[in-house]
Design a protein around this nucleic acid. Sequence first.
DNA 1: TTGAAAATTAAACATAAATTTAAAAAATAA
DNA 2: TTATTTTTTAAATTTATGTTTAATTTTCAA
Lengths: 201, 201
Amino acid sequence: MASFREQKIARKKREILRSAAAVLAEKGYHGTTMEEIAAQLLMTKGSMYYYFKNKDDILYHCHQMIMELSLEKIEEVAGSNLNPDDKLQSAIKAHILLSIEEKSMFMIMDKPSQKFTEDQLKEVLDAQKKYAHFFDQILNEGVEKQVFEILDIKMVRMIILGALNSIQHWYNHDGPQTGEEIAYAYAANLLKMVVKPSLQK
Amino acid sequence: MASFREQKIARKKREILRSAAAVLAEKGYHGTTMEEIAAQLLMTKGSMYYYFKNKDDILYHCHQMIMELSLEKIEEVAGSNLNPDDKLQSAIKAHILLSIEEKSMFMIMDKPSQKFTEDQLKEVLDAQKKYAHFFDQILNEGVEKQVFEILDIKMVRMIILGALNSIQHWYNHDGPQTGEEIAYAYAANLLKMVVKPSLQK
DNA sequence: TTGAAAATTAAACATAAATTTAAAAAATAA
DNA sequence: TTATTTTTTAAATTTATGTTTAATTTTCAA
């Protein structure tokens, strides 16, 4: 079990990662200084190094944090016993809602840093493959159950994930549309791409 | 008319932009040094400043170069007298083929630099709006001519452009698929999203 | 061939920011 | 309270690299 102190450190680390993600998303990796990350938390940059090895380590842990969250969600949806179309709809919605809720974290995810260690890079790429695989699984299931008609699963997955992963770039929390609305519209449109015409609702 | 010398300068500038785009795409803005850009052309970093004001100026002109190319293509397609579905297909294919051919340039486009001047930023954003507008125009025309069925044009355009703009991140020139194949598959799938079911080929 | 303009260069300059360090402050347990 | 450990800090260090400069080389027209 985690001691009180360990919990406290873990909380502080999460605070730092959130603060960092916010700045990183807005200003980019090299536009973001350790000082800025620290300042948001009323700390000095020096103490960042008490919690993280260096700046890249912070970025890596941001990736890790959001990857874990994403995988949890998709795993749950993929493992549910929904019909293929409802399952795909759920997966799309879950992805969008998370990407909006955690907009900053998602925005820094587009490309793994060139400075990650080999292990870190592998972790990130593996998680992405894993995530993609869950989508493929859902699409495959739909084809097997004759609900979907798909020529090339991988291509369709690329289209879907590509569309989903651009939302955080334009979504604005103060804008007119709610995340729910966007999620609903995206799901409805993307499903048209795969659901057999004869089965379209 | 451009003098011989002016042409030569223009050519050199293009060479620098291409060299820069290649490094920028691979290593990111701050991972790219002026020295590296120059070295690829067997020049020294100092002479970069004979052609461009500074590093951001180079990045800006990369944006400008690719925006011009993109707008030319989409303008041509949008202005053609193809049927709405063929027109959308052409637009999608043109976008994909250009994004693959000019992969580096497209990769650095995802977010305008925080360091652009106000004017530069405006130019970039305006061009993007203009580009998006051509797509909206094509979609609208399809609806008017009752070939497409679209609830929310803007949303559909976002989905399409989001999907298209992710290709350069995973596309590999040495990979198994040709640009043509990808373009064809993307167009076929995305069209399913908008063409009335009764008219699907 | 020659000299002015254009282009290139090496070296100097400037600065920004990541990281380290050693000391101070705060927290905690005895 | 007091001693020990944890956490925070300010300042020093280091490094990297964008930009400037002044001198040199190249180009090209007369």
